[in-house]
Amino acid sequence: MKIAVCLKQVPDTEANIKIASDQKSIDESAIKFIVNPYDEYAIEEALKLKESQGAESVIAITLGPDRAKDALRTAVAMGVDDVVLLKTSANSSDALSAAKSLAAKIKETGAEMILLGKEAIDDGSMQVGPMLSELLNIPCITVVTKLEVNGSSVKAEREIEGGVEVLQTTMPCIITCQKGLNEPRFPSIRGVMMAKKKQISEEAVELDDAKLAVSSLSYPQSRSEGKIVGEGTEAVPELIRLLREEAKVI
C-alpha cells in the first residue's frame, strides 16, 4: 500500500495579514509560512498507518510556489518518505484546477489511501478533498476524527451535528482529517537535519484552466473595544442596561 498526503503551505496562524496593493492578494513579505495545521493531522495519520499497516511508503504532495518546499521539508522531518512539489507560477484560488493537478499526480503514484486536511486555514474552501474523489472516482470521507484500516477495509468516524457518524468503505479512498484524529508528532532534530539536505523533486504545473478568480479582498470590520462597566454587584444594573439597550442581546 502506498499512502499519499496532500498538503498546503499557509500563513502562520499568528501572522499579521496585510492585503497587497492589488487588493486581490496578501502581502507575503513579512509572513512566516507553515504547514496547514489540518494537513499535519493527515501527515501524522499517514505515518501511523505506515507503522501499523506496514505501508510501502508515504508521499507528500503539495501545490504551490517555490517557498512551499519548506512545508515539504517539515513533512520529511516528520517522517514522510517522498515529497513532490507541483510548482505553480501564480497564486490561484481555483480549487478545481488545483485538484486536477493533484489528482493526476496521485494517479501516477498509485496511492490507495489519500489523506488531506479537512480544509486549508487560508481560504477555507473545503473543496479539494471531495473534488479529488470525483476526479479519481473513489469514495471520500470528510471531517474524520477516527480512522481504522484493516486490510483494504476502512472504517471512519466523522463529526456530525450533535453526534458521530461511522462510515465504512474500501480502499482506494480519500480521507479529510479533522482535529482530534491524532496528535501530530514533533519533527525530530535528526529528521529536521535530514530534511534540510533532502533533494525535493519539483514538477511545473500550469493552472490555466482556472475558472475562478479573486476579485477583491477586504479586512473584516474592526470590533469595537471592550468596556469595563465597574466592579461587584453595583455594576450589574448598568451592565444589564447596556446589554439590553446597546448590544440588544437581552
Binding site: 502562520d12 499568528e14 501572522a15 499579521n16 513579512a30 512566516k32 507553515i34 514533533f186
Partner: peptide, 18 residues
C-alpha cells in the same frame, strides 16, 4: 515553545510582526 521559536522566534509563538 519550540514551535514558537521556530515559527515566530519567541517561545510563546506570538506573531513575530507584533
Amino acid at each position: 515553545a519550540f514551535r514558537g521559536l521556530e515559527t515566530n522566534s519567541n517561545p510563546w509563538n506570538l506573531g513575530m510582526s507584533e
